[in-house]
Simulated scan of single mutants.
Amino acid sequence: MTAFSEQLKAHTAAAHQHAEDAGFVTELLAGRLDRGQVGALLLQNLIIYRALEEALAANQDPRLQAFADPALARVPALEQDLQVHFGAGWESLPAEANLYVTPGARAYADQLAAMGPGSLAYLLAHHYVRYLGDLSGGQIISTLVQRHYGLGPEGLNFYAFDGVGKLKAYKDAYRQRLDDVELSGSERADVLAHAATAFETNRQVFVDLMAHRLGSGIPS
C-alpha cells in the first residue's frame, strides 16, 4: 500500500504546479517585480497564519496535536519581517505602499477561523501544504528574493526555521508522522481533497496580488 505521504504528494502534484505557475510567483522569483511586493506577500501570509495557528491551537484532536511544534510557528517571524519592511507601527498605517490585504487572503483567513472541533482533515491538510511548503519551496523563495531585491535575512524571518534542525531530516520525520497517523478511509480522502484545494486557495492569493499590481482596482 502506498504511504499516505506519497499519496498526498501525488494527489496534489497538479494543483501544486498550477499554484507555482501563477504569474505573481514567476514574476517575483524572476526579479521582475520590486521589493515592496515581497512585503505585500509577507502581509498576506501574516493574515493567513494568524488564522491558521489560532485554529490549530483551538483543535485538541490528539492526532492533530502530534504535528504541533512551536518551532513551526510563523506569526512572530512574520510580525518581525513586516516591521523591517514597513516600520514600527505598520498595522496602524493606511493601506498604501503594498499594505493591502487581498480578497483571497481574507477569504482564506475567514475559512480557517470558521473551523470547529470536527475540522481535523481540513486543518491537517492545510498544515501539510503550508508548513511543508515553507520548509521546501519557501527556502528557494528566500534565496531568490534576497538575490534579486537586495534584501537581507532580517526581513525574511518567515522562511527561517532555526528551531527545527536539519530541514531534510525534519521533513522526513514529518512525512513519517503523516504515514503513521490513524485516519479512517473517509478522513484520508478528506485530507487529500482539502490539500489539493489548499494549493488552489493559495494560488488565488497570488492571482489577487498580481491583479492589484496591475491596477485592477482590487480594494485594500
Score class of each variant (00 low, 15 high):
T2F: 11
A3H: 12
F4S: 04
E6D: 15
Q7R: 15
K9W: 04
H11G: 03
A13N: 00
Q17R: 12
H18Y: 11
E27H: 13
E27V: 00
L28P: 06
A30Y: 08
G31T: 00
G36K: 02
Q37W: 15
V38G: 10
V38M: 07
A40L: 05
A40V: 01
L41C: 08
L42T: 00
L42W: 02
L43A: 03
N45L: 14
I47H: 13
I47F: 09
I48L: 13
Y49P: 06
E53D: 14
E53G: 12
E54I: 11
L56E: 12
L56K: 09
A57G: 02
A58P: 01
R63L: 09
L64C: 04
L64V: 09
L64E: 02
Q65W: 01
A66C: 01
D69G: 07
P70G: 03
L72S: 03
A73P: 03
A73M: 07
V75F: 01
V75E: 13
V75P: 08
A77L: 14
L78V: 08
L78G: 00
L78A: 01
Q80T: 12
Q80I: 02
Q80A: 10
L82G: 07
Q83K: 14
V84D: 08
V84Q: 13
F86G: 05
F86M: 06
F86A: 04
E91W: 08
S92P: 05
L93S: 11
L93P: 02
P94K: 07
A95L: 00
E96W: 14
N98A: 11
N98W: 15
T102L: 03
T102M: 06
G104Y: 06
G104E: 09
A107F: 05
A109F: 09
Q111A: 13
L112G: 11
A113V: 00
A113T: 08
A114T: 04
M115L: 11
G116V: 01
P117H: 07
P117R: 13
L120H: 10
A121N: 11
A121M: 09
A121C: 08
Y122R: 04
L123E: 05
A125I: 01
Y128E: 01
V129C: 15
V129N: 11
G133S: 10
G133C: 05
L135G: 05
G138H: 06
Q139P: 09
I141P: 06
V145I: 06
R147V: 02
H148Q: 03
H148T: 00
P153N: 05
Y159V: 10
Y159H: 13
Y159D: 03
A160S: 06
F161N: 00
V164H: 10
V164N: 07
G165S: 03
L167V: 13
K168L: 02
A169P: 07
Y170W: 04
D172W: 03
D172N: 14
R175G: 01
R177S: 06
L178G: 01
L183F: 14
L183H: 13
S184K: 12
S184H: 10
G185A: 15
E187N: 12
A189Q: 13
A189D: 14
D190F: 05
D190R: 14
V191H: 06
H194N: 13
A196P: 05
T197R: 15
R203G: 01
R203F: 01
F206H: 08
V207Q: 07
L209N: 08
A211F: 04
H212W: 14
L214N: 12
G215Q: 06
